[in-house]
Write a protein that binds this DNA or RNA. Structure first.
Lengths: 254, 254
DNA sequence: CGATTGTTTGAAGCAGCTCAACGGCCGTGG
DNA sequence: CCACGGCCGTTGAGCTGCTTCAAACAATCG
C-alpha cells in the first residue's frame, strides 16, 4: 500500500467530500488529513467489528455496507448503513477505540485514510476542523435517529421508499443521476438494513413496478414517479394505478 | 435562574457523571464546564426539537424522555431514549446547531448545564476533555446503532427484555437497585421507544409476570429472575414455568 | 459451461396491530 | 376529606402485514 503524497490535489470530490467533513468554510488543506488511499475489492472488509480504531475513512470510489452484531441483544446481525463516495466510515471508533461495525465493499472500491492522530492534532490546531468533526459525529447521530424512527414506526413499503429516496439524493449529490442507478447490495442486504426479509423487498419492488412508480430489474433501478415515491415514504398506500399514485402526492385528490 | 458558582463540589455523581463524560482519567475540574443547574417539572420540556443548540445537559436528578419527529419520513414521532441521572442530553445539537429531539421530564427533575462555548474552549485547552467529548458522541452513535439492530431484528418480547435489562444496569450504575425500580414512563412511551404498541407492552408484562420473571404493578417493577430475562433478551421464548425460564439462562445447570 | 449465488413468486401461518370496553389510580375541586 | 373526571393500564377479539418455507429461474463467475 504505497502512500500517496498529495492525493487530494487531483480529487474531484473536493467540493463534497473532505471540506464538508472537516472545516468546510475555512479552505483547509485536505491533504494534511489524508494519509493515503487504500483499495478494497468486492466483498472484502475495510475493517472488522472489534478492530482497533486507527483511522476514519472516506469513500473515494465505489461503495460499502456496514454491519453490526449487537452484543447486548444476542447474536443478531444487521446491515446498519450503506456508504457512497464522499461519505465517512468508521466514526464509531471514537467511542471505545474499536470499530463497532464491519465495513465491507459492495464493489471494487477505494477510500481516503484519515488517521485518528492526525485528525486530533490538526483539530487541536484548527477549531474549524474540530467543529467539522463534531458536526460529522452529530450528523451520524441524527441519521441513526431517523433510522430508529423509520424502523420503529414505518411499514415495509414506507421503509423501502424512504431508502430509495435517500439513495437518490445521495447519488445526485455526487453528480450521478437521481433517477437511475445501480443497487450494489443484495435484496437481503436491503432487507436487513430495513428490518424486513429479502423476499418482502422483492415483493415490494414488484408492487412498485406494477404501480408504475419505478422500473427495476435485478440491480438496475429507475425511478419513474418521484412524487409518488415521496408520498409513499410519507405514508400513502401503493396502488396499481400510476395516475392515482402520482395524484396522491397532493392531498386533494378525487 | 441563578448561576451556581461551584455546583460540582457537593455533587454526588462526581464518580459517574462528568468525569465519565469529559476527561475521566485526568482529574479535570467539572465546575469549569458546568454553568449552572436548571429545574424542569414533570411533563415540561428541557428543550424542543429545532431549538438553537446552546448547551449540552447532564441529568442531575430525575429522568427524561427524548422524542424525535422524522422530517425525512413523514410525521412519525417516536421516543428515542430515556435519560437517567448522569447521562448526557442534547449531544445531537453538534450536527446542525439545533436540537434534533425534544427532551421532556418524566418527573420533577434537574440538570447540569454545559454551554457549548465552554465545552469547545476547554476542549481546545485540554485534549483529554476533547477526547472525552468525542467518546461521548461515539457512544451515542453506538447506543443508537444497537437500538437500530434491536428494532430491526428482535421480537417484541426481546425488545422489552432488553430495555428492562438496560434500565437495570443504568440504575445500578448510579447506586439504585438493579432489581427493583419505578418505570417513570407510560406503557405508550415504552411501546413507542421499542416500536410496538402500548397494548403489546402491557400484554408482555402480563406474560413475564406469569412466567415468574418479574413482578409488575403499574409503574413499580421488580425483576425476580435476571437470568431468565437475559436469556429472553437473547432470543429464548417466554414460558409459564419459572423453573424452565431460569434453566434457560445457563444450559448446563441442574 | 457448470456451479454458486441472488431473485422471484407462491402458500400457509402467526406476531403484533387496531378497535373496543372496562377498571383502577390520581389529581382536582367541592 | 371525599367525590368526580380524566388518564393510564389491562384484557379480549378479529384482522392483516409480514415471515417462513419452498421451488423455480436468472445472472454471474471461475
Amino acid at each position: 500500500m504505497p502512500a500517496i503524497s498529495s492525493p487530494c490535489a487531483s480529487c474531484n470530490f473536493r467540493r463534497g467530500c473532505l471540506p464538508r467533513l472537516l472545516g468546510k468554510e475555512h479552505g483547509e488543506h485536505p491533504e494534511r488529513l489524508v494519509h493515503m488511499h487504500r483499495s478494497v475489492r468486492t466483498a472484502e472488509a475495510l475493517f472488522h467489528e472489534g478492530d482497533a480504531f486507527r483511522s476514519v475513512y472516506v469513500v473515494f470510489g465505489g461503495s460499502f455496507k456496514a454491519s453490526a452484531t449487537s452484543a447486548r441483544a444476542g447474536t443478531r446481525t444487521q446491515v446498519t448503513g450503506f456508504f457512497l463516495p464522499g461519505e465517512p466510515l468508521g466514526l464509531t471508533g471514537f467511542a471505545s477505540g474499536r470499530y463497532e461495525v464491519s465495513a465491507v465493499a459492495l464493489e471494487d472500491s477505494s477510500v481516503c485514510v484519515l488517521p485518528r492522530a492526525r485528525i486530533e492534532r490538526i483539530g487541536h490546531e484548527l477549531p474549524a476542523v474540530q467543529r467539522g468533526l463534531h458536526a460529522a459525529l452529530g450528523q451520524a447521530i441524527v441519521r441513526e435517529q431517523e433510522m430508529m424512527v423509520l424502523l420503529g414506526t414505518a411499514s415495509a413499503e414506507q421503509r423501502l421508499a424512504t431508502l430509495l429516496l435517500d439513495l437518490s439524493v445521495r447519488f445526485a449529490r455526487h453528480g450521478y443521476s437521481a433517477h437511475e442507478f445501480l443497487l450494489r447490495m443484495t435484496r437481503e442486504d436491503i432487507g436487513s438494513y430495513l428490518g424486513i426479509s429479502g423476499e418482502t423487498v422483492s415483493r415490494l419492488f414488484a408492487g412498485l413496478r406494477e404501480a408504475g412508480v419505478l422500473e427495476v430489474q435485478y440491480r438496475r433501478l429507475r425511478i419513474l414517479d418521484m412524487a409518488a415515491l415521496r408520498s409513499l415514504a410519507h405514508g400513502a398506500r401503493a396502488s396499481a394505478e400510476p395516475a392515482v399514485a402520482a395524484r396522491r402526492a397532493a392531498p386533494m385528490e378525487a
